[in-house]
Simulated assay, not measured.
Amino acid sequence: MRQELLSLPKTLAEDVAKNLVMVARLIDEDPERAYAYSKIALRLASRVAAVREAGGFAAYANQKYSEALAEFRAARRMTGSAELWPVMADCERGLGRPEKALDMAGAPEVHKLDKAGQVEMRLVAAGARRDMGQLDAAIVTLQSPELASSAVQPWTARLRYAYADALLAAGREGEAREWFAKAVEADRDGSTDASDRLAELDGVDFVDALDESEGEGDTDEVVVEADEAEAEADDAGTDGAAEKADRGDDRDED
């Protein structure tokens, strides 16, 4: 990306770079703001492939699939790379065209992808099958050497998770549980909610013991109870003193 920005005047390159940095920082936690920064970068340097790609991912994160697809296509025309092919196919799914996504999964461009790209393409194809109600075909699509491998790669957790989810959708709960457990083993950075899905299948409910609203209510009740106890103690002390005084008066009279 830095190399591509060298084609711009220095000041302009710095401005574009700052906006691209903000896109990267915000795209997961605040996709709307990331999208706003991407639009600024596109306005400044729409002829830079990296800018078009960043704009595509920002639009994709906001489910603006038509816009994302247009940006990805522009970036691909500029670079000639097939790297964006899987996410372009997923945009077709987002636009309600799973058949088109499946066509792309069988295109020659897939053979130009690296291993990570091919796994991503397989995930998209399986998703397209599920969109079309073809659950068994989705399961078969995900069955691959990468799924069977015991080695953990960056895509392993997501691949196992997708397979487990497809099995569960097909009513194969026992197998689904097994593969959710395998996804948990591979999910070192928490990229999926496999542990929650596994707990759900096992009937485990997690309760937040530190719920702030409940904690505040409990604290108030404790304070009220303490005040009431203190008042009762004061009353008891007063009554006791009065009784002692009465007994003293009786003794004096005697």
Results as ranks from 00 to 15, higher is better:
K112E: 05
D227V: 14
E67A: 15
G55M: 03
R47A: 11
E178Q: 15
L123P: 02
P108D: 05
A151E: 14
L142F: 00
P154K: 04
E71W: 09
S81T: 14
T219H: 15
G203Y: 04
A162D: 02
K112V: 03
A233P: 02
K244T: 10
L42S: 05
I27E: 03
E71T: 09
L95N: 06
Y60P: 03
R73Y: 13
R52M: 10
W85L: 07
D205Y: 08
S46V: 06
E221T: 08
Y60M: 06
M104L: 11
A50K: 13
G240N: 12
S66Q: 13
V223R: 15
Q153D: 07
E120V: 07
A125G: 11
K112P: 00
N62I: 12
D235K: 11
A166T: 01
L168K: 10
S38G: 04
R129T: 03
W85P: 05
D15V: 11
G217R: 14
E212K: 10
S46A: 11
G190P: 09
A126V: 10
V87W: 01
D239L: 14
R251M: 11
Y161D: 08
W155E: 01
R130E: 15
M121L: 06
Y163C: 05
S81E: 10
T192Y: 05
D234A: 15
R73V: 13
Y35V: 10
E175V: 08
N19W: 06
D249T: 10
P98V: 05
V51Y: 13
A164Q: 06
Y163G: 04
V51T: 13
A89T: 03
S150H: 07
A75R: 08
A24E: 14
C91G: 06
T141G: 06
